[in-house]
Design a protein around this nucleic acid. Structure first.
Lengths: 114, 114
DNA sequence: TGTCGCTATATTTGACAATATATAACGATA
DNA sequence: TATCGTTATATATTGTCAAATATAGCGACA
């Protein structure tokens, strides 16, 4: 029997979720596609949900994370601010450190308890 | 603006959840009340859900975690095995270490990114 | 052997979240 | 000014999961 430890981290601002794994994945997809609707499609997420997530993120973060534009050539688009890119990196770093930490913690306990 | 980092950890066996925060809370309540139905009530959880959680836990863990008895004086009851108590302690330890670790990680990033 | 409070299990009901659908607005470009 | 693909927003529908409800079974004990 193989036991695995898993985790999920997120960051809250005023008891509201600011950033979690789902939003980070969405931000990455926006970075790749340059569009909110394409990013949503690539994650098999409804456009509405993607829009809501980004809207909440933009309004709660201390700086704008995603810049959207309506109309014009190509109909519009969405792209990350430099601050947004930093957010992704910071989150990923913490998340990976956390995984590594938990694996170590698990090994400490493994032979006694699980 | 105050940012907080939160986390949730759980342990899987064969891609099924074995133990998470909810089940640990339930185990603690069973330890206190000596009864599955009372434990469920104290957590405002339906009996059915509590029973399902414990059933899954017992069948997937390598040793029995909760011992139930039907009928007899008082109608029956439920109590933890020593192994079950170890499980709670191990989980709590890892969980608290994880919180402390994440707080430290967050402080590392805080002034740059969040 | 009847009572009691609990475990064990199935079935129905209901709430809420996720999804789908529809439509308006937008601005560069031709 | 007509077209285009996108953002932005409201509404309707669907699906899923939790909760409520119902009922059977159990064993010590009086």
């Amino acid at each position: 029997m193989k036991y695995k430890i898993k985790s999920r981290i997120w960051i809250e601002a005023d008891d509201n979720v600011l950033l979690g794994e789902g939003r980070v994945a969405l931000l990455k997809a926006i970075e790749e596609t340059g569009s909110l609707s394409k990013a949503a499609k690539s994650l098999k997420m409804s456009y509405k949900k993607a829009w809501s997530l980004i809207d909440a993120l933009n309004s709660r973060a201390q700086k704008q994370v995603v810049i959207t534009s309506i109309g014009g050539k190509g109909g519009g688009g969405a792209k990350l601010t430099p601050y947004g890119k930093n957010l992704i990196d910071a989150f990923d770093t913490i998340n990976q450190n956390c995984w590594a930490f938990l694996d170590k913690e698990m090994k400490k306990q493994l032979y006694h308890d699980f």
